[in-house]
Design a protein around this nucleic acid. Structure first.
Lengths: 347, 347
DNA sequence: CTGTTAGCGCGTTCAT
DNA sequence: ATGAACGCGCTAACAG
């Protein structure tokens, strides 16, 4: 593998001249420039970023540590982040924590050792110890999707509380009073915030919150199905269900299908997040949709701004709005023209 | 930021001893080991992988360059690859090419400069020039999902031809004779192979292949819808459609819905790939399913085996089987018990 | 079991 | 406009 020295020898110049040509870092006469470039091509010389980074202390690499790239929501976030990083000439490392603090710690350690320039991450745990670890090493961090307590940090997330509030408001306006919420782990701020929005909406209408109607589980299909079974066997049965994320909604739909509960005729359903439009044949579920791609790109841009010092002083908290999209599952008159029972399943 | 030298000084040993303790690379007396470890903790020392890699010429980093992480198929492949890499102590870089040769070249260059140990990639173009570039730099490559021509390389892919052959065989056995195929770009081997399997199945039954029933487009929802419109306005109309991937199937379903063509009553539909089970409420589409996760993990494992020299000599071509999963969309008696029209849409 | 020497490939500093 | 020397942080090679 040729080094800068080999190129220099072939071009009849010193190594530093080659370096200057490559990095365009100083005026070089046209003649030597051409000779150097020819030598580079002839040898198939590839600069060694390791050596460069060792010297410059910058790797032009970001990391994205999230819970599970298999969830289309995170996939979209990842794509937004990668596009923004790539546009700025940065590469991206990826890791899945599966909500495990141990995996999270392992990744962080590896990333620090790799001297990456910054980290985007979805924290596991309320007060991730890793935040302090990263700060100590002076690695800029942008926290994605979730609030943290204890330490301060830049955060880019969506308005979970507001989205939930609007969804429940919709259900209330349609006459529902017994509304169940199936949320994620209480330790995750988005799960908590969605329940919080639920409570606020009910409280404002003077509807008493019944503990049995509030379920905390996991953000998975299995957990969604289980929680749905729980609330559907209550009597009186809830007339509407609010699913705390896309997987929970899918699980709830599966459960309702098993129990021959029709949506929305028997029980209305609203969700949070959705499958991307290109995975959807026929929008059916009423959801609070989060701008996932933008969340990723905004977070990456904020991180990049920190790196080049153009970000404003103090920690930023970017809260993106969630938008309610009304479809048939909520039983709203808006989508009543569509005949739910006659539509193709998305398999 | 403390270096190995600082640790050495504090522990009263030489830097190389610290290195040995950290890397467990030689017997060190318990006493000094403890002292070194204490010093590491006290200083919050983090090894600098850049320097280590510069010396050792290994980065413990793989790259995954694919077309679009937004497609659940690739997401699953990515997850399989990442899990395998992570298990072996390797990190993973990610890039999306969007089928652009220029992006592909840019990523490859950046990855080479970063001295990554190996690359998993989904090639854009039949004979990617980048393959030679990588070989020249002695970077092991495993080609994912697609055959390439010209250069030899390790390949991990699925049996597209066989899957298509089985799907069309199913349709033929159900009595279909006018079967349309909506495939991807002819330049992509999977698109070609699926058409090839289609032709072989028809030929074996003595069914004449009609050019108008064979469409090449893109692996996107829009293209799928467009191609479906094309074939559905032929007369006589095809009685069955084979969609070349998951996005094309979704596009075809959308088109058929628009045209009030019922599936499978009016036209049967079979597809290739699918949405993962946890994104699916109610399996409807008959598909040839590819083992996406396994494809990613097998590819990563092969690459890792190349790196430590345990892979067999010569290039490997791993062809994973595709499995046909029969559901209602093909009109097969197997799923006739399910009432298609009464099921919830997956939104 | 531990240390010395040297150098991985590059870019900063200072010189010419 | 170009070059020499030095060092980024770590470990291979060779002692002892």
């Amino acid at each position: 593998m040729p080094t800068i020295r080999d190129v220099a020898k072939l071009a009849g110049v010193s190594p530093i001249t080659v370096s200057r040509v490559i990095n365009n870092t100083s005026y070089i006469s046209e003649g030597t420039k051409k000779r150097v470039e020819a030598a580079v091509r002839q040898l198939g010389y590839v600069p060694n970023t390791l050596a460069r980074s060792l010297r410059s202390r910058r790797t032009s690499t970001l990391a994205l540590v999230l819970t599970d790239i298999t969830n289309p929501f995170w996939t979209t976030v990842a794509r937004g982040a990668e596009d923004a990083a790539s546009k700025a000439g940065f590469s991206m490392m990826l890791g899945n924590t599966d909500e495990s603090e141990e995996k999270q710690a392992r990744y962080m350690k590896a990333l620090l050792e790799k001297q990456i320039d910054g980290i985007l991450f979805v924290p596991v745990g309320k007060t991730p110890a890793v935040i302090r670890m990263l700060k100590r090493q002076d690695v800029p961090v942008v926290v994605l999707d979730r609030r943290i307590t204890g330490d301060k940090a830049d955060v880019v997330r969506c308005d979970s509380e507001g989205g939930a509030y609007k969804l429940i408001g919709l259900l209330l306006s349609l006459g529902h009073r017994r509304i169940a919420v199936l949320s994620g782990p209480q330790s995750i701020s988005t799960a908590e915030d969605r329940v919080q929005g639920y409570r606020r909406a009910l409280a404002e209408q003077g509807v008493t919150v019944q503990p049995g109607l509030m379920q905390y589980g996991k953000f998975t299909v299995e957990s969604g199905a289980e929680m749905a079974h729980q609330v559907l066997k209550l009597s009186p049965r809830p007339t509407a269900i609010f699913a705390g994320n896309n997987f929970i909604a899918i699980g709830a739909l599966k459960a309702m299908q098993e129990l021959h509960v029709r949506v929305p005729e028997d029980v209305a359903l609203v969700g949070f997040d959705d499958l991307p439009a290109n995975l959807t044949i026929d929008p059916f579920l009423t959801v609070a949709r989060q701008p996932a791609y933008e969340m990723g790109s905004r977070a990456a841009e904020l991180l990049l701004a920190r790196l080049d010092g153009t970000a404003p002083r103090g920690y930023q908290e970017v809260v993106l709005p969630t938008e309610v999209e009304i479809h048939h599952s909520s039983g709203s008159p808006v989508s009543a023209r569509g005949d739910f029972t006659a539509k193709a399943s998305a398999r």
